[in-house]
Design a protein around this nucleic acid. Structure first.
Ligand code: ZN
Ligand code: ZN
Ligand code: ZN
Ligand code: ZN
Ligand code: ZN
Ligand code: ZN
Ligand code: ZN
Ligand code: ZN
Ligand code: ZN
Ligand code: ZN
Ligand code: ZN
Ligand code: ZN
Lengths: 456, 456
DNA sequence: CTTTCTCTGTTTTGTC
DNA sequence: GGACAAAACAGAGAAA
DNA sequence: CTTTCTCTGTTTTGTC
DNA sequence: GGACAAAACAGAGAAA
C-alpha cells in the first residue's frame, strides 16, 4: 500500500511486523489475538488498495490498511464467551429440552425479513446473530434489567437452524461457537457493498462537485481468490483485479445485468479520500505494542464507547457525560444502577421503584423523573422503562468480535456498529439517477431529505 | 338570599344598593355598566338560591348571589366593539359585497356540529359566535399575527343567517351588535345545566361519600318566570319553584320523560358547598365602588387573566410569569412582540424571522428557539408558529361580555371561559349509573380516567 | 461546510 | 381489526 | 386530598 | 384516499 504507507509518520510500523506478530501478546486488548495460522489470511499483495476476507463467522474484514476508518485489523474469531453474551442463555438447546419455552412463544424465527430501507438480499443475515437486531434477547443478569422490569422470555426455538434460505449461494453458518456438526447452514454474506472504495457512478457525480480529479483509471473490482489454507471453514480471500468482469458488485443492483456492473466508474476522488484517512491512521492506527489494534481502536473517541486513559492508552470504564450523584443509587458490579425506592410502580410488567411519591407519580405518567430529563414524556410506559437505561451505566449489548470492546445500551446501535467492521452500506438511494449507498440509516435519511430524493 | 348574606362581613353591600346603582359609574371596570332598565332583570325574590336570566344575546347570567364562583353579576349586553373584536372584520357583509371572499373558501358555515364529548343539543349554539370556537377568525391587527404568518382568510359567507336549526325552540340570535332586522335567528340556549345548584342523583351519590347530610328536603327546580319588562328581546327570568314540575332540567337527559326529572334529588351538601364559596365571596365579591363587579372579578386570580393591583384593586396589564428580557424584541402597542430578526423563515405560509441563524434553523425544524422552551419540538410547522404566542403578550381572544375583561391567547380557552358565565356543564358521563356532568373537558376527562368510566 | 458514527424517541413491521 | 414486541427509522448531535 | 379554571401540544372532525 | 384548518380533547398545573 505505497501511497498510504508514505503518509505514516512516527509510530509507523513496518507491515512485516504485523504478519510476524505472535499471539503471546498479553496487552489489555489483545490477550486473545490469533495465531499466525489465522494471520496467514492476511492479504499480502503489495498494491495500494485494501483487501478483504471472510472469517468463519461470516464477517468480512480488511487487513493491512486503514482506509475508510477500517484500520489494521487482526484476524479473529469470536470467542465462545462473547457469543454467549450475545445469544440467549439457552440458545441451541435441543428442541425438547426446555418444555416451558416452546415455539408458541414470541421469538421464534420468522421466515420474513424485517427491512425497510435496506437493500433486500435473499441471503442476507446479520453477523453472529439469529435475530437481526437482538434487542429482545438481552440476557438479564443479576441486578440488571430483570430487577426493574420483566425479563424478556427466552426461546429454545430461537432459530430453526434447519431453515435454509433460497438459492445456491449457501455457505457455512456463523455459529462458530458450536461444534461443526451443530452449526446452522446460513448463507454467507454478499461482499459487494463491503468494498466501499468502489464508488458508484452517482456517488462520483456528487463528489466531483467539490473535489479535483486525481486519476482517470478505472477502479478495481474484486473477485474471490479461492479458499485460503489455514482457516477451517468458509474462508474466502477477496483480491482486487483491475477491470475484472466476474463480480456481483452491488446487492442493490441484483436485477441488473452483469456487464453493466463489471467495470465500475473510476474513483476520481480516491486520492483525497485516502489522504484524509491516512492522516487519521498516522496518528492512531497502531497500538504501543507494535501490533495491530482492535478494529475500533483507530476510530475517533465517541460517546458511550471504549474510553481510554490519555496517558496509558488503557481502556477504562466509561463515565456518563453528566455523571449525576444519586445518594439513593447503588451501582452493582454490572454497572446497573438500582434505585432503592420504596415507591413501587404497580403498572403491569413494570418493577421500577422510586424514592419519592412525586417521582413515582411522574413515572406512572410515562415521564422520566430524572433531573436532567425535565419531566420528558414518552409514548408508552414500556419505553419510559427502557428510557431509564440512559441513566445507568450498563451496556448489555456487546459486539462479539475479538478485539472490539464496544458495547451498547441498545441493540440498534450495535447493529449499525457492526457495519463499521463489515463496511456494509445497505442503504441505496432509489432516486432516478442517484443510487448512492449509505452505511447508516441516518445518513441515508439525511441524503433523501436534503436532496429531496424521495421516491414513489 | 339569607343564608348566604349572613356570612358576609365587612364590605357587604346591601342588596338594595345593587338595584339602585346608576350607570354613571365610571370605574375602570364599570364604565359601560348598564342602566336600571337592564338591572331590573335582577331576580328579586328573597329565597336563598341564586336566580338566572337570559339576556338578549342568549347567555344566561345569575344575579344577586355569588354561589359557585358566580358572584354578583351585572346585567349587561355585549358592546358592539367587543363583538367586533370577536368576529371577523367583514362579518355580515352582504353576500355579494366581497367577491374575493366567497363561499368556496374555507370558513363557510357547516350544518354539522363539531362536538365530541359534549352533550349534543339540537339547538345549541355558542354564545355570540357563529363558529363554535372561533380560533380561525381572529382578526389580524397591525404588527399582529399577520406579521408573522399568513392571516386566516376571512369569509363573507361566514354564517348563513338564514339557516334555521330544527325545532320550535328558536329564539332571537345573539348578533346584538347588529340592527335587529339583520340578526340571525339562532335558537337560544337551553338553560338546564346552567343551574348547577341542581345536583343530579349520581352527583349526590358521589358526594354523599364525604359529606354529612344536612337536609332531606327536595332541591328546587326552576321554571321560566316570563318575560321581564325592560329587556327588548328574548329575556326570560328563571325563578326557582320548589317541587316544580314544568322544567326540562338536563340536556343530557333529553330523551327521558319529564316526570322523571321534575323533582330532582335533594341537594344534601348544599350547606357545605355554599359555605365554602360564601367565604370567598366575603373577601372578594364586592368592588370598592360599592357596586357589583364584573362576572370574573370574584374569581381567584389565574394566570394570563385580569391582574389586579393589590392595593388599589385596579386592573393592571398582565405580565408573563417569567418575563424574559429580549433586547431584540419590540413590543407594539398591541402587546405583540415582534422579533426583529434578519433570518427569515421561507417555509410556505410562515413569515417568522430570527436574530440568529441557529434560531432560524431550530424554527425550521419545528422547534422553539426560545430559551425557556429547551428546543421543544412540535408536530407541525403550523403549530410551531402558533406556539410562539406563549412568548408574546398579545391576547387576541376577548370575551365579549360587558364587564368581563378576560382575554385569551387561544380560542378554546375562551370557549371554556364562557361556561364560567353560562354555568353550562356540557359534559355528561355516559357510564352506566354515573351521569355526572362537568363544565370543563379536563375535569370530565380526569373523571373518566380516575373512575375508569370508559364506555363503548 | 463535510463525513463518520452513536444516541434515542417514535414508527413500522410482524406475530399471535 | 386488536395487543404486543422487535426492528427499523429519522432525526439530533458529537467529533474532527 | 378536593374543586375550579386556564394553558397547551396533539388528536379528531370536517371540508374541499 | 389526500391536505388543510377549526374544533375539541387530554392532560398538566395553578390556586385556594
Ligand atoms: Zn491488500
Ligand atoms: Zn445457531
Ligand atoms: Zn412503571
Ligand atoms: Zn430520563
Ligand atoms: Zn467494533
Ligand atoms: Zn439520492
Ligand atoms: Zn335569586
Ligand atoms: Zn350574525
Ligand atoms: Zn417558519
Ligand atoms: Zn417556545
Ligand atoms: Zn368572564
Ligand atoms: Zn362517570
Amino acid at each position: 500500500m505505497p501511497d498510504l504507507a508514505s503518509t505514516f509518520e512516527t509510530s509507523m510500523v513496518d507491515m512485516s511486523t504485523i504478519n510476524s506478530a505472535d499471539n503471546s501478546s498479553d496487552g489489555y486488548l489483545f490477550e486473545e489475538i490469533l495465531s499466525m495460522e489465522n494471520l496467514s489470511n492476511l492479504c499480502m499483495d503489495d498494491d495500494d488498495l485494501p483487501c478483504h476476507f471472510q472469517t468463519d463467522s461470516g464477517a468480512l474484514a480488511c487487513v493491512g490498511c486503514g482506509i475508510l476508518g477500517f484500520p489494521l485489523m487482526t484476524v479473529v474469531q469470536p470467542s465462545e464467551r462473547s457469543l454467549m453474551e450475545l445469544l440467549p442463555a439457552n440458545h441451541h438447546l435441543p428442541p425438547d429440552s426446555s418444555p416451558d419455552l416452546n415455539s408458541s412463544m414470541h421469538g421464534s424465527v420468522s421466515s420474513k425479513e424485517v427491512k425497510r430501507n435496506q437493500i433486500p438480499a435473499s441471503h442476507d443475515k446479520p453477523i453472529n446473530e439469529h435475530t437481526p437486531n437482538g434487542e429482545g434477547f438481552e440476557v438479564p443478569i443479576e441486578l440488571s434489567a430483570a430487577d426493574l422490569y420483566d425479563p424478556v422470555p427466552l426461546d429454545a426455538e430461537l432459530h430453526e437452524d434447519a431453515q435454509i434460505v433460497e438459492g445456491n449461494n449457501r455457505e457455512i453458518n456463523p455459529c462458530s461457537h458450536l461444534p461443526v456438526e451443530q452449526r446452522c447452514e446460513y448463507p454467507r454474506r454478499e461482499h459487494a457493498e463491503v468494498l466501499d472504495e468502489v464508488i458508484s457512478d452517482s456517488e462520483k457525480q456528487h463528489q466531483d462537485q467539490n473535489e479535483n480529479k486525481i486519476g482517470e483509471e478505472p477502479a478495481p473490482s474484486y473477485v474471490p481468490k479461492g479458499e485460503p489454507k489455514s482457516l477451517s471453514i468458509s474462508k474466502v480471500i477477496w483480491s482486487k483485479k483491475k477491470n475484472g468482469t466476474e463480480v456481483h458488485l452491488s446487492r442493490g443492483k441484483r436485477e441488473v445485468g452483469g456487464s453493466e456492473l463489471a467495470t465500475p466508474a473510476p474513483s476520481s476522488n480516491s486520492g483525497k479520500k485516502r489522504k484524509r484517512e491516512a492522516e487519521w491512521i498516522t496518528k492512531d492506527s497502531f497500538s504501543s505494542y507494535g501490533f495491530a489494534r482492535s478494529p475500533c481502536e483507530g476510530l475517533r473517541p465517541r460517546a458511550g464507547k471504549v474510553a481510554r486513559d490519555k496517558s496509558t492508552n488503557a481502556v477504562k470504564t466509561l463515565e456518563p457525560k453528566m455523571a449525576r450523584k444519586h445518594p439513593d443509587v447503588l451501582v452493582s458490579h454490572k454497572n446497573k444502577k438500582v434505585v432503592k425506592g420504596s415507591h413501587k410502580c404497580d403498572i403491569d410488567g413494570c418493577r421500577m421503584s422510586f424514592k419519592t411519591k412525586a417521582e413515582l407519580k411522574l413515572h406512572k405518567r410515562n415521564r422520566c423523573p430524572h433531573d436532567g430529563c425535565g419531566k420528558k414524556k414518552f409514548s408508552s410506559h414500556k419505553y419510559a422503562m427502557i428510557h431509564q437505561r440512559v441513566h445507568d451505566d450498563e451496556r448489555p449489548f456487546k459486539y462479539p468480535w475479538e478485539g472490539c470492546s464496544m458495547s451498547f445500551k441498545g441493540a440498534w446501535t450495535r447493529t449499525e456498529h457492526i457495519r463499521v467492521h463489515t463496511r456494509e452500506k445497505p442503504y441505496q438511494c432509489k432516486f432516478e439517477g442517484c443510487g448512492l449507498s449509505f452505511r447508516f440509516v441516518s445518513d441515508y435519511s439525511r441524503h433523501r431529505r436534503k436532496m429531496r430524493h424521495y421516491v414513489k
